Amino acid sequence: MLKFFRKIRKGLVEERKISNYALYAIGEIVLVVIGILIALAIDNANEQHNKREKEQVYLIGLKKEFETSQIKLKELISVNKRSYKDSKTIIGFMQDPEDLPNEEELSNLFYNAFAFDISFNPNNSLLQEMINSGSLKDLSNPQLRVLLTNWISNLEDITKQEAMLDQERNQIINMFRTNEYSIKTIYDLTGVSGDLGLSVGKERLSNLTILKSTEFENNMLMFILTSITTETMHYSPLMQGMDEILATINSEIRE
């Protein structure tokens, strides 16, 4: 097309038709501008396409991470629930001295209540990478960006709550590190000694007397309160938040 205009222009110049030459010169400029605009539009379309494809990769990765984190949280809620339920059972025995458990039953209650740390460890590697690299802005849905940012803040609050719960648990466990009570008895009667390759003792120090301790009862009550608060005020809202994040992610993923 440009060759055609140049040929006409040459002929016009030779014929000294200046006005017509100017008209065709303008037409040539217009064609060049149109060509540039078309090229820019194509580049922009390609860039937008690449951004959308990149966003889809992020969305699929985030979906996998949050689905895995949700499974972890469900299991953690179950462990925490068993922990405070068995703790409440122990408190119940303390309220009725005429109906005490045997040593093996009490050992199993102690083990289920205090043997497991309560700590949420979500899969956040991709999300952290996106935040550190500034790629969170590549997500086109502003609501999703807000939800993901709030998610990080909520995790920080939960870490503090779990530290409080761990402190209350240690208060109770430390009572068994004295000469009055026996961790070995709990290990023997719950099968932990065998799992650790330890010999089972023939004589055991009873832990039943701890049910008469006011200090133990106070520590137990604080532990139960902190455990239930961790579930109701932190884990349950976090689970709801994950449901919302996953629903939003799913709405943005192309089929």
Results as ranks from 00 to 15, higher is better:
residue 169 R to T: 14
residue 182 S to C: 08
residue 150 N to M: 08
residue 176 F to V: 09
residue 118 I to P: 02
residue 129 E to G: 15
residue 193 S to T: 09
residue 182 S to P: 06
residue 117 D to Y: 13
residue 190 T to G: 02
residue 160 K to A: 10
residue 179 N to L: 01
residue 185 T to A: 06
residue 202 K to E: 14
residue 190 T to I: 12
residue 181 Y to C: 05
residue 177 R to N: 14
residue 119 S to D: 10
residue 164 M to Q: 09
residue 127 L to K: 02
residue 160 K to M: 08
residue 138 D to H: 07
residue 132 N to G: 00
residue 141 N to G: 11
residue 212 K to S: 12
residue 181 Y to K: 07
residue 209 T to P: 00
residue 130 M to A: 10
residue 211 L to I: 03
residue 137 K to G: 03
residue 134 G to D: 05
residue 140 S to W: 00
residue 164 M to G: 06
residue 145 R to T: 13
residue 165 L to D: 04
residue 134 G to M: 06
residue 147 L to G: 02
residue 155 L to Q: 07
residue 119 S to C: 03
residue 179 N to T: 05
residue 168 E to V: 09
residue 144 L to A: 12
residue 203 E to K: 12
residue 166 D to H: 14
residue 175 M to C: 11
residue 165 L to I: 11
residue 124 N to E: 07
residue 113 A to M: 14
residue 183 I to D: 07
residue 131 I to V: 14
residue 149 T to H: 06
residue 180 E to T: 06
residue 196 L to V: 03
residue 203 E to M: 04
residue 126 L to D: 05
residue 212 K to D: 11
residue 111 Y to K: 14
residue 138 D to T: 11
residue 145 R to K: 15
residue 154 N to K: 14
residue 139 L to P: 01
residue 162 E to D: 03
residue 135 S to M: 04
residue 129 E to S: 14
residue 141 N to D: 15
residue 208 L to K: 10
residue 216 F to V: 04
residue 144 L to S: 10
residue 153 S to T: 08
residue 124 N to Q: 02
residue 156 E to P: 00
residue 162 E to T: 05
residue 151 W to S: 03
residue 151 W to Y: 15
residue 162 E to F: 05
residue 129 E to C: 01
residue 146 V to S: 11
residue 137 K to H: 07
residue 216 F to G: 08
residue 197 G to D: 08
residue 112 N to H: 15
residue 185 T to H: 03
residue 137 K to M: 06
residue 185 T to Y: 04
residue 195 D to Y: 02
residue 137 K to A: 15
residue 188 D to E: 05
residue 192 V to E: 14
residue 112 N to Q: 13
residue 159 T to W: 00
residue 159 T to S: 09
residue 160 K to C: 00
residue 148 L to Y: 06
residue 124 N to T: 12
residue 175 M to E: 14
residue 186 I to R: 02
residue 140 S to I: 06
residue 177 R to A: 06
residue 156 E to R: 05
residue 211 L to A: 07
residue 177 R to L: 12
residue 122 P to T: 04
residue 161 Q to M: 09
residue 148 L to R: 08
residue 189 L to Y: 12
residue 158 I to W: 02
residue 190 T to W: 01
residue 196 L to F: 10
residue 135 S to G: 00
residue 161 Q to T: 03
residue 198 L to W: 15
residue 188 D to C: 04
residue 135 S to L: 09
residue 129 E to K: 13
residue 172 I to G: 08
residue 182 S to D: 13
residue 161 Q to S: 07
residue 205 L to M: 12
residue 194 G to V: 15
residue 156 E to D: 09
residue 157 D to T: 02
residue 148 L to W: 06
residue 192 V to C: 03
